[in-house]
Amino acid sequence: MLRDITIGQYYPVASRIHALDPRTKLAATMLYLLSLFMTDSVAGYAIATIFLFSVIRLSRVPFRFMVRGLKAIMILLVLSVSFNLFLTPGTELFGIGFIHITYEGLFTALFMAVRLVYLVLGSSIMTLTTTPNALTDGLEKSLGFMKRFGVPVHEIAMMMSIALRFIPILVEETDKIMKAQTARGADFESGGLIQKARAMVPLLVPLFISAFRRALDLSMAMEARCYHGGEGRTKMRPLRYGKNDMHAYVIILIYFILMLLTNLLPF
């Protein structure tokens, strides 16, 4: 079950989206996420749909990989859809007992669902087509100006990329500890919330100990390979904008303006 986390899972194929500079993808993803909140019209969602699915096609990542990320927000999705569906006042469509579904509610719920799904799909495209290292490189470079205000940008970026690297390892370890404790009679399934939380203790304690041990090992391995902070570091793949990045910026800007314009439309 824990294996379904798509974030940080790079899908290695060669595509135009993969080849873009991570800064371009970051900016584009930001604009795309923003655009989803700027529109409320059918036309807007139509444009977003076309845009999203063309990018997915271009990225050559199989669609099922994209959808995996959705499982994580299932509960959120169901909750927000039902709240919107049942609690929006307006013209009643039909009602049974205390449940009333309104025309407005149906629309808001639908839009909300689409918006949430598109948010996740949009950000999955970025994480699936960008290696986490490239992503943190992109962040490090775009936020580099903050170094002047004393923000340790390099260190934060390094920490993020290490965290991403260790997520799958720790997930596997959690699985192993869980099995080991179950074999010795631990019960993670039954009981109420408090009992379940208490059952997590024999899982979390060994997990934390092992995480600390790994951190110690890793810091030693990094030192052994001459790591001494961000100063004087070079890059194997320094970030350089190419022609395609300029095209991508133009396309995303046109898309964003179109999305803004949909607000002027009557539907």
């Binding site: 290292n133 690297r165 790994r214 090992d217 391995a221 390979r225």
Partner: peptide
């Protein structure tokens, strides 16, 4: 070092 997982830093 001994543990292969604990000395690989990058994701690629």
């Amino acid at each position: 070092f001994q543990n292969p997982d604990n000395q690989i830093i990058a994701n690629v």
